[in-house]
Design a protein around this nucleic acid. Structure first.
Lengths: 255, 255
DNA sequence: TGGATCGTTCGGGGAACGCCGAAAGGTCAT
DNA sequence: ATGACCTTTCGGCGTTCCCCGAACGATCCA
């Protein structure tokens, strides 16, 4: 009974569309200011301030005050995992994007993005599949690193990432693909490495990333991964998503 | 924005203490009637009826109507996983049990219980640790089944459990122990096997289970597991839980 | 057929919640 | 110091939500 109260309290933090929008935005792993969150969600700064305070008090967000700014980030990987998990259980999005702007943004997000600290979208899934195909991950065992995978990762990074509280590798079923991709400490290390080496770079201010020419070559060398195929895949699943409706406009706008 | 709406809608289903109590009760994996849930949560039948309808509509619960009864169960393992995940992020319970009755119940729950379809509590953790110690699970790899683990399980059950949508093995950080234990298809199969062979049996009508003499022997033979030690462990962690306060009453009551 | 049990629907009361605008506190740059 | 900017507090409005009791429909048993 006291148990159900605390569960309800936690869920209530995410049970509001504005707070949920905050958390989803913060899934990019970076720190946003209170005002940025307000504009992003389309509410008054005063409203955002109250929401942010509740999320911090509830332990979901961590804050850093700097001058007149209040920087907010997710409290940790476990919170990010929680949000992802909940998003994964959400019914598929029925509303097609309205404007050309939002359509382009949605396409970029589906193709490649970060999911807190690891890769997601078609790129994340493709990397995970390629690693599984080379026996670096074990698809039957929750996509855990195999012995070969550990060696491969240590060779790539110089050392295996340290494991404190979070698992070394974990799957994250993502929001657009509905397929598992690599998360956990190894997923985060791999993503950080890709940013360091400029294999990937952020597009604008959101979660979307693009593969650089460097990255295209590196991923081909490392995993036989053809990143150009990310577009082909998109067309296939688009066809599935809309169930045969208006494939024309969808295809035309996305060009 | 439409994305945050659906996340909020899902979270709102669990953002009420009564609905949360329903879901936690249903974590025992069995079907409860609407009236049972009402009594369990201490609300009027009419109130429970509305809550149940919302949970079913939201996809969290599945219903089977039989005569004048309405049987409710969690919609699937993924929903159970979600509830467990949320419970795991709940702050530790500060309220000690009041009555002797509830104290005894809490002790039994901590010792051994089911968590939807797999084992949890000290027993679940002990089995998982024993399997990891014998290299049947890989602690560094998200507690995935190793090759030896697959063979061991296939030998025990006659065949490996079929894997459709859920992962073969997965960890579930549980509510009292805060430590991982085996879940997923293999965890469910192992638990079902233990019930079939009468290694374990339910205590009363809740989630608590006890180890039978059969089970005591079988677990010792299979995994060198000394189920009598579950009590010793309990005392140790009790001491940690209460932080040095009233260890006397805690120890005395639990005898 | 009558009575008991289980569930649902409906109306209403009370509380909690989310939102805003106005006003004010800090902080930074000129 | 002055003005621009970011954030917070407060009062108030409207909505939603949770709960109950009463009445009703359905089912099972005697």
């Amino acid at each position: 009974m006291t148990e159900s109260r605390s569960l309800a309290r936690l869920a209530a933090l995410l049970a509001d569309a504005t707070r949920a929008a905050f958390c989803l935005a913060l899934l990019d792993g970076r720190a946003w200011t209170s005002g940025e969150l307000a504009r992003h969600a389309g509410v008054a700064p005063s409203t955002a301030s109250e929401h942010v305070t509740r999320l911090v008090d509830g332990g979901l967000l961590a804050e850093v005050r700097q001058g007149r700014h209040r920087y907010l980030r997710l409290a940790g990987p476990d919170v990010a995992h929680l949000i992802e998990e909940l998003s994964g259980h959400t019914p598929p999005d029925p509303a097609p994007p309205r404007t050309l702007r939002s359509e382009r943004a949605a396409v970029a997000l589906r193709r490649a993005r970060t999911c807190y600290d690891h890769l997601a979208g078609r790129l994340g899934v493709a990397v995970t599949d390629a690693m599984a195909g080379r026996r670096l991950l074990d698809p039957d065992g929750g996509y855990a690193l195999t012995g070969a995978g550990r060696a491969w990762l240590a060779d790539l990074l110089g050392a295996l990432p340290p494991v404190k509280t979070r698992p070394m590798s974990r799957t994250c079923v993502d929001w657009t693909e509905r397929r598992p991709h690599l998360a956990g400490a190894s997923g985060a290390a791999l993503c950080a490495h890709a940013f360091d080496r400029a294999w990937i770079a952020r597009i604008g201010s959101g979660r979307a990333v693009k593969v650089t020419p460097y990255g295209r070559q590196a991923l081909a060398d490392l995993l036989d991964l053809d990143t150009d195929k990310l577009d082909t895949d998109r067309l296939d699943t688009d066809r599935l998503d809309v169930g045969g409706l208006n494939t024309d406009t969808g295809g035309a706008v996305s060009r």
